[in-house]
Design a binder for these strands. Sequence first.
DNA 1: GCTTCAGTGCCAGGTTTTGGCACCATTGGT
DNA 2: ACCAATGGTGCCAAAACCTGGCACTGAAGC
Lengths: 239, 239
Amino acid sequence: MNVRLRHDAIVRSLRRTGTSTVADLAADVGASRRTVLRDISALRDAGFVIHSEPGRGGGLQLDPQSVQTTTKLSVAEVFALLISVASMRAAGNLPFAGLADAGLAKIEKALPRDKVRDLRRLLDCLYVGQLSPLVDISDLSMMDPALLPAFETAFLQRQCIGFQYRDARGGLTDRIVEPHAMLILPPLWYLVAWDPARDDLRHFRMDRIGRPELVQGAAFQRRHVPFEDHVRPVRDLSR
Amino acid sequence: MNVRLRHDAIVRSLRRTGTSTVADLAADVGASRRTVLRDISALRDAGFVIHSEPGRGGGLQLDPQSVQTTTKLSVAEVFALLISVASMRAAGNLPFAGLADAGLAKIEKALPRDKVRDLRRLLDCLYVGQLSPLVDISDLSMMDPALLPAFETAFLQRQCIGFQYRDARGGLTDRIVEPHAMLILPPLWYLVAWDPARDDLRHFRMDRIGRPELVQGAAFQRRHVPFEDHVRPVRDLSR
DNA sequence: GCTTCAGTGCCAGGTTTTGGCACCATTGGT
DNA sequence: ACCAATGGTGCCAAAACCTGGCACTGAAGC
């Protein structure tokens, strides 16, 4: 097992159990006691605060304060993984097509250890919160995943996208918009997009969007306009 | 020298010199030609586009675009991850926690088939796009990262958070709100939060928020209200 | 005094990384 | 046509690193 993954596993285990002994951890992550001790030492070097108590009833305990750091680290790891997926996708063709067994094996081996620091820096800056306890992410009834690839392409290539939209009153309209962002407010997803026809920034509920398709050759009209101009209308949101 | 550091060094060197040969790189980072070639291969797997030209006057060249592309994709996927990790962190034991853990562990092992499907589904479902070409992620002038930890805690622990807010007209008000989500619409960040005092959902520009602090003991008033109720006002956004 | 625990030092075995080598393909110059 | 410079690959042995076992110490509780 990879060192980094094992470190993560240890941190997760500690967070889950609260307190556990080195021997338990070793059994948990499938490594020897000695190795776990080395890992603990490394984690401490990396900034994790891990309390230890010798003697009967003792054990290791991860300082809850440092859990933030913990999460960042593991996020960084997963993120690294996604980057590799992304690169595979870029190299290949279809969205996530590369996620075959071979691809995953490749992820495991080939790369992204060198990316991790960059990622961590990114993650320090990029953050999102959500009202998690109220949300079951696995309930995606409000969002049809099949829609996403088209939007992904539109976002990344600054292409306009057309779709049918059913508004709050049930009326159907055809839209061609420049997609800017997703607002994820579980369980609802909103597309934040500029509607050139209405010269306004609109929010579309993703679950009301149907039959999206890229508008070939229709790049953003505002391509060369400074972004500030683009975003200005949004100020309305902030009241 | 560490692999990761060497990869970094190679990328830096390539960026600095524009074009250089494998032999030069080897001398630069203090490794053998063979090792540098291996590193180049790894970097390519990781998504760096490195052009190469054999023959006299040839050499390696790092495609400046490719670095951006990598970043763009990463940003898109960070969101997805943060969401899953957020839920993982909060729930600790619910669906996604298992999936994330399993995903990582399996990858490490060379993966059972059935989890691959789950993982793919996870990746398919969690997604976000952004108008990347217009955005320089490193420009965070509009957002003070120092603010984030407090908000993270507030999100995750459903604690109210208080801050000073300078509204569009420059007036200062003190707010105590229940934070729901971040809307990231580069370069602006918005906090989407319920303001109990005004009984309304508001959008706050993060760059107008000052001196945030958790309101100890002030959990969300609406803690046990079904999420739908909570989110209903947002429908306004979708027009 | 015994047991349970964290922690350290050491070493043999195993795994991974590295460097050297031979070799091929391509390119531009002579 | 030939040569030198350059990227790229396969192979292998040596070097470096990681791991697990072992013996040990010290602290805490019973």
